[in-house]
C-alpha cells in the first residue's frame, strides 16, 4: 500500500536521512574536497571534489544539508547560493577536461531565496548549469536522495541518468508554496502534495527518472554498496557510449505533455 504523498514529503525531509557527505563517505574512496567557484566564494551547501569509485576516478558533487542544528545552519539547510552552482559547474568542466564521469547527489528544498543570491544572479547561475550540462562530454548520473526542490535541484540534474530514492521527492514547487499560491492556504499542503505528483513513482511514470533505488537498510553499508554497484555498472556503460550528448538531448527533448489541435 502506497503512502500518501505528503507523508513521503515528510520522509524526504527527515534530518535522520543520510545526507550528501554520508553518501560520499560510504560509496567512494579517498574523497578530496575541492572548494570555491573562483568567482565569489565557497558555498558550504554544495560539496564537491574528486574520489575513486572502485577503480575509476570520478568527480562527485553533493548538496549537503547537515544533520545537527549547527551543521544545518552552516550548510544553509542545503539551499545553495549562486556560487555553489558555479562551483559545481567548475568541477564538471574539470571532470570533462580529465575525462572522468560526474556523480551528483541532490537534496534541497530549493535554491537559496535571499537578497545576496539575487544580487549574484541565482537565475543566471542555474540557467548556465542547465545549458552547459546539456553538452558536457562525460557521463553524468544524478541521484535525488531527499528533496528535489525545483530549479535548485534541476541545476545538478541535467544528466544521462537520473535516479531517485524510494522516498525522495522531485517537484516544481513545494507543496506548501503551491497551496499558498493557488488556495491562499499553506495548510492545504497535503492536497497540493497529492496534486503535484511528486513521488519517485510519478517521476518514473512521466519518464523524468530512469530508476527508483530501494531504501532497504538505509544508512547501513549494504545500502551504500548497492548504490555503488549500480553506479559502477551504469557509468561503465555510459563511458562506452559514443552518442552520449545526442542521447542526453533526446532524453530531455522528449519530456512534456503537449496536444496538437487546430
Amino acid at each position: 500500500m502506497d503512502q500518501i504523498p505528503y507523508a513521503v514529503v515528510k520522509l524526504a525531509r527527515d534530518n535522520m536521512r543520510p545526507t550528501g557527505l554520508d553518501y560520499i563517505g560510504h560509496i567512494f574512496k579517498d574523497f578530496t574536497e575541492l572548494h570555491g567557484d573562483r568567482r565569489f566564494g565557497d558555498d558550504p551547501a554544495i560539496v564537491g571534489g574528486v574520489a575513486w569509485l572502485g577503480d575509476t576516478p570520478v568527480t562527485v558533487i553533493a548538496i549537503e544539508k547537515g544533520h545537527t542544528a549547527k551543521e544545518r545552519s552552516f550548510r544553509n539547510f542545503g539551499a545553495p547560493n549562486p556560487e555553489g552552482y558555479r562551483k559545481a559547474l567548475r568541477l564538471m568542466k574539470q571532470a570533462e577536461k580529465f575525462g572522468r564521469p560526474v556523480v551528483c547527489f541532490i537534496d534541497t528544498s530549493g535554491a537559496c531565496c535571499g537578497i545576496g543570491a539575487e544580487e549574484r544572479g541565482q537565475g543566471q547561475a542555474i540557467a548556465e548549469n542547465l545549458m552547459e550540462m546539456s553538452t558536457l562530454c562525460v557521463p553524468v548520473v544524478s541521484i535525488l536522495v531527499g528533496e528535489g526542490g525545483s530549479g535548485g535541484a534541476l541545476a545538478l540534474a541535467v544528466a544521462d541518468r537520473v535516479w531517485m530514492l524510494e522516498n525522495a521527492v522531485y517537484s516544481v514547487i513545494s507543496p506548501e508554496g503551491c497551496a499558498s499560491i493557488l488556495w491562499k492556504d499553506a495548510k492545504q499542503a497535503e492536497t497540493a502534495a497529492a496534486s503535484l505528483k511528486l513521488t519517485a513513482k510519478d517521476a518514473l511514470r512521466f519518464g523524468v527518472i530512469e530508476r527508483i533505488l530501494p531504501e532497504k537498510d538505509m544508512g547501513k553499508q549494504p545500502f551504500y554498496d548497492r548504490i555503488a554497484a549500480a553506479l559502477k555498472t551504469e557509468l561503465d556503460a555510459l563511458s562506452r557510449d559514443p552518442d552520449l550528448i545526442a542521447k542526453r538531448y533526446a532524453r530531455f527533448r522528449g519530456l512534456g505533455a503537449v496536444e496538437e489541435s487546430k
Binding site: E132, S134, T135, I173, Y249, L255, G256
Partner: peptide
C-alpha cells in the same frame, strides 16, 4: 516562472529549452 499545474513536466521544460538554446549557440 514554471507552470506549477504541470508539475515536474514543466520543470523539465527548463532543461529542454536550455539544451535547445545551447545547440543554437554552439
Amino acid at each position: 516562472g514554471a507552470r506549477m499545474q504541470e508539475g515536474l513536466l514543466s520543470l523539465m521544460q527548463m532543461a529542454k529549452t536550455s539544451a535547445a538554446v545551447k545547440r543554437h549557440s554552439d
